[in-house]
């Protein structure tokens, strides 16, 4: 555990908490993509199957359980409790266009051709692109509430901090995983446009509105 890794995990946790607070306080999931939330739930479940096979640490187990349970809770809030506020019409990204290629890629490029390893690889690839339905929704409506912007910033920062963690681990421990590094770089790049808007607009107190 190094400072980048810890900061990344805390940023990830903060993102999830911000999203739950936004939905709970406003009693609304307007502006949030249910498709992205479904993809994240698939990511956590397929990645953390090792919960039942391998014990790493109390921290590791605790965080995995938190990520799985909060993503299920988010989906429950969006599709059951606050269903009426869910913006179906704008959340029109076809997730099979992400699920199928990620799975096929996981079958082709993986560290070992075993069920757990393929599902882990699939989850890494899927996580890299899971935010696309959310970014698509923001681009369709042309704006995002400030708390949604903070959520996206924290979520994007998490993998960027992991990139620093991987650089650190490569030099400090000689540890590296090319699949995670490659997917993590793609994931971070997808947020760059959003990061720019966040820094130039939201941090200056303006609403995140896309240029027409």
């Amino acid at each position: 555990m190094n400072i980048f890794r810890l900061a990344g995990d805390l940023s990830h946790l903060l993102a999830i908490i911000l999203l739950l607070i936004k939905i709970w306080k406003t009693r609304s999931c307007a502006g949030i993509s249910g498709k992205s939330q479904i993809l994240f739930a698939i990511v956590y479940v397929s990645r953390y199957l090792d919960l039942v096979t391998t014990f790493i640490s109390v921290y590791n187990t605790f965080m995995k359980l938190v990520f799985i349970s909060t993503s299920v809770a988010t989906i429950y809030l969006m599709y059951v409790k606050f269903k009426a506020t869910y913006d179906h019409n704008h959340d029109s990204f076809r997730i099979e266009f992400l699920l199928v290629p990620c799975f096929l890629l996981a079958l082709l490029i993986n560290n070992a051709f075993t069920p757990l390893e393929i599902l882990w690889t699939f989850s890494i690839y899927l996580e890299a692109v899971a935010i696309l339905p959310q970014l698509f929704l923001v681009s369709k409506t042309g704006e995002a509430e400030s708390i949604t912007s903070h959520y996206l910033f924290a979520l994007g920062s998490y993998r960027a901090l992991y990139l620093l963690n991987w650089i650190y681990r490569y030099y400090a421990e000689g540890h590296y995983d090319l699949i995670a590094i490659f997917a993590g770089a793609i994931q971070t790049i997808l947020y760059c446009d959003f990061f720019y808007l966040y820094i130039t607009k939201v941090l200056k107190g303006k609403k995140l509105q896309l240029p027409a």
């Binding site: 890794r5 990645r47 790493i56 995995k64 882990w120 992991y162």
Partner: peptide, 10 residues
């Protein structure tokens, strides 16, 4: 550290 196992990252 064969095939990056066990996965200590989240």
């Amino acid at each position: 550290d064969l095939y990056g196992q066990p996965k200590d990252e989240l």
